[in-house]
């Protein structure tokens, strides 16, 4: 098949068949992770720079493992702060990386549009968005999609309940788009101050009561609550949040017993999730971590493995 997406910036323009293709490629990579020798020579000679402007151990390590398993030469470039004011601009950093011969750049940046910007400035390298501000986190969404697909099979007609801070979540934005494009009905719940203005633009509906959202859901997706949102006064207290929106046995009592519980990590126990749920039989949280490596391998291979002049 012809692969249309030179870069992986967000999933806005991905259609269902492209998502399906990535799911299948991820399954092949997932098999590889069971082998004694996980490293394959597929991308030998390619140089990928992991350019991280925000601390992120999980995403970076996951990308790094995926790169190493595909025999990529990996460089981790940790930059700090924004490009305005002090230091080198993102544009100059980008050109420097390209001059060093990077075939691809994985970028994590606090500013919305940083990955798009980088993609416009780079002439040769492929850009993978490892998260830009509250905008997009496409690899997280794809790994979540894969995790659900692996467990449930065809996702069409399923329902996903997403609980938490949708407003500030790049994970939420990308996940809602990915799941709804696969035919999954997405319902959101959480404090109204943490909901986006127009959820229907993303393809989701808002339910005031989280119990209504999780009822009949095949997947319950819990978003991470950033403590600073409480400090900013977006909701009164973490305890109040947990009481009304945290996934504990009470909320899970409204859900189907076989519903999958997902969370992008790292989890805040006793805020958005209780330990009994996080460690319970429905929890897919560690499965998501494994899927992340396989998914990133698939994406790297799809974008860097073929002919691209």
């Amino acid at each position: 098949m012809e692969w249309r997406h030179r870069h992986v910036l967000d999933l806005d323009s991905w259609d269902r068949s492209e998502l399906q293709h990535i799911l299948e490629q991820t399954r092949s990579m997932d098999e590889l992770l069971d082998r004694p020798i996980k490293k394959v020579p597929a991308l030998r000679g390619k140089l990928v720079v992991n350019l991280f402007f925000e601390p992120s151990t999980r995403t970076r390590v996951s990308f790094e493992l995926a790169e190493k398993f595909l025999s990529v030469d990996v460089v981790n470039w940790t930059a700090s702060g924004s490009s305005t004011g002090k230091g080198e601009t993102l544009r100059d950093t980008a050109w420097t990386l390209e001059a060093m011969g990077a075939d691809a750049v994985v970028v994590r940046h606090g500013a919305v549009g940083a990955a798009d910007y980088l993609a416009k400035k780079l002439r040769r390298s492929v850009v993978f968005n490892g998260g830009d501000g509250a905008h997009a986190h496409p690899t997280q969404a794809l790994l979540d999609l894969y995790t659900a697909w692996k467990s449930l099979g065809d996702l069409h007609g399923r329902k996903l309940a997403m609980i938490g801070d949708v407003l500030h979540s790049r994970v939420a934005r990308s996940d809602i788009i990915a799941f709804s494009r696969m035919g999954v009905k997405v319902e959101l719940s959480g404090p109204p101050t943490l909901m986006p203005r127009a959820p229907e633009a993303l393809g989701a509906t808002f339910r005031k009561d989280p119990h209504d959202a999780v009822r009949d859901a095949d997947i319950i997706y819990l978003l991470r609550i950033q403590r600073e949102r409480q400090e900013e006064g977006m909701f009164p207290s973490l305890d109040e949040y947990h009481q009304f929106f945290g996934a504990d046995s009470r909320l899970m009592g409204s859900a189907r017993p076989d519903a999958l519980v997902m969370h992008p990590g790292p989890i805040n126990r006793r805020v958005e999730i209780s330990s009994e749920v996080a460690d319970g039989p429905q929890s897919m949280i560690l499965g998501q971590v494994r899927s992340g490596v396989a998914l990133r391998m698939a994406l790297l291979f799809v974008c860097l493995g073929g002919v691209r002049q």
Binding site: V112, A134, S169, R197, A198
Partner: peptide
């Protein structure tokens, strides 16, 4: 705030 609160803030994640 960065963009209009509505479709744009919802899709972009930029503050409305």
């Amino acid at each position: 705030a960065q963009v209009n609160e509505g479709i744009c803030s919802t899709l972009s994640g930029l503050k409305g």
